[in-house]
Amino acid sequence: MKVEIWSDIMCPFCYIGKRRFEAALQQFAHQDKVEVIWHSFELDPNMQTRPGQNINELLAERKGVSLAEARRMNEYVAGAAQEVGLRFDFERMQPVNTFNAHRFSHLAAAQGKQDAAEERLFAAYFTEGRNVDDADTLAQLGTDIGLDAEAVRRMLASDEYAQQVRIDEYQARQIGVRGVPYFVFEDKYAVSGAQPAELFQEVLTKVWDEFNPAPTPVTLAEGPACGLDGADC
């Protein structure tokens, strides 16, 4: 079963949604038959990387609210993250442009390490306060998941995987993605948002049953038998 996920590194509900989906997947009897593919989606392609500023300050600036109010808004999100075992540190999170991080994910995908790359990027951004637009940082994150640091640097110094990011974003527009996370199951069913694990379990089961129906036995011979109403017995 193919599950495609459109997400952005700086989207808190994408990380929360990842955890909830993983929880559902752990309970799914056919989890070893599920292929997860991550797709790029930039929430703000024009975002400028701002080392030294934190997300609370950016939110206050964009929403026109006080810094205290911005902190309260982010505390709500941090609480949702904590429910699935994640620790978000909004004081350390740095506003970044995520285009290079998405290219990094595609590089990892080419080596069969995309899910590890997404997890490492999320943790670096939300928990560790790392600048995931920085070449040195991405090279280190690559090393953490088994990629060659110099290969990461060469990719970042070129335009490699830029087209793949743009293709992902074009596909998102074509299927009407307006927000992330956005999950598509077998090109037919979609789930938008960080839904509860129970809902993901229901969808996984529904899609599996539809695309892998139980076989219907072929009757080769008939003999004496009891009917449903007990007649003939």
Rank of each mutant, 00 (worst) to 15 (best):
G52D: 13
L228A: 14
Q164Y: 02
V65Y: 02
A172L: 08
T98M: 07
F122A: 04
D44V: 01
A80I: 03
F99N: 08
G176T: 07
V177K: 03
I16V: 13
F104L: 03
R92I: 06
C233F: 13
Q164S: 08
F13H: 04
H30E: 11
A81Y: 01
K18N: 06
E22P: 03
Q31F: 12
L59K: 10
T205P: 01
I175V: 15
E160Y: 03
V84R: 08
W38K: 02
M1D: 04
P217N: 09
S105I: 08
F41I: 02
D232A: 14
D32I: 02
V177G: 07
L204P: 02
D148G: 07
T98D: 03
M1P: 06
P215W: 07
V132C: 06
E160P: 02
A214D: 11
I167R: 15
D168L: 03
A81I: 03
A149N: 09
A139M: 05
A68D: 15
G129R: 11
D187K: 15
Q27P: 02
V177R: 01
Y76C: 00
E210F: 13
D229C: 13
E35M: 10
A225E: 15
T205I: 06
T216N: 13
R72E: 15
E91C: 10
E69Q: 15
Q201M: 09
M155S: 03
D134K: 07
R72H: 14
D8S: 02
Q195T: 05
A197Q: 08
D144Q: 13
A231M: 10
L204Y: 05
A60T: 09
G17E: 01
T98N: 07
W208L: 07
Q174S: 06
L25F: 10
M47G: 04
G79H: 05
I167W: 08
E202P: 01
I175W: 09
G176W: 01
Q94N: 06
D187W: 04
N56Y: 06
N54V: 05
P224S: 11
I16N: 00
I9F: 00
M10I: 14
S7E: 02
L86M: 11
R153D: 02
E222R: 15
V184F: 03
S7Q: 03
E222G: 11
I5G: 00
S7G: 09
C14N: 00
K113D: 01
T49D: 09
F211D: 15
E202C: 00
L59T: 12
A116S: 11
M1Q: 05
A225I: 06
N97I: 10
D148V: 12
T219H: 08
V65S: 09
Q171M: 10
R72W: 08
E118T: 07
L204F: 06
P181D: 03
R103C: 05
G112F: 01
T137H: 00
Y125K: 03
A194Y: 09
N131L: 10
G179E: 02
A60Q: 06
G129T: 11
R19H: 11
A116W: 09
K63G: 10
A194N: 07
A23L: 09
G193E: 06
